[in-house]
């Protein structure tokens, strides 16, 4: 179910966020560096669901000091992939 990132290198922040996701939702079988940064996080991608989104939001708020919002019109974009979530974090982080 995980698409291996073939030749798609993760940026430093992306691999940090990948580890945070793997830890937050107990994906212990998924090495963080095998997450395709462009693959969808939910459903067909990593197969995450809304409960996972809550766990990820908590981890993001603890680690980066801001709260995710889902009624943001960009919500679908933010959670579309590891890459887009990382970009959103880069733009909003306060720590």
């Amino acid at each position: 179910m995980i698409r291996i990132a073939e030749g798609r290198a993760l940026t430093e922040l992306e691999s940090e966020v990948a580890s945070l996701i793997v830890e937050a939702v107990n994906l212990e079988d998924v090495p963080a560096d095998t997450i395709d940064p462009e693959a969808p996080l939910f459903r067909e991608g990593l197969g995450l669901d809304s409960i996972d989104a809550l766990e990820i939001a908590l981890a993001v708020s603890t680690t980066y000091g801001f709260e995710l919002r889902s009624d943001d019109a960009n919500n679908h974009k933010i959670f579309a992939s590891l890459r887009s979530l990382s970009a959103h974090i880069a733009a909003h982080r306060v720590k």
């Binding site: 809304s50 989104a53 809550l54 939001a57 708020s61 709260e67 995710l68 919002r69 889902s70 009624d71």
Partner: peptide, 12 residues
Amino acid sequence: ERPMFPADVAAA
């Protein structure tokens, strides 16, 4: 709505 994240819920 069905707000999900804490910040959404507080706003709702």
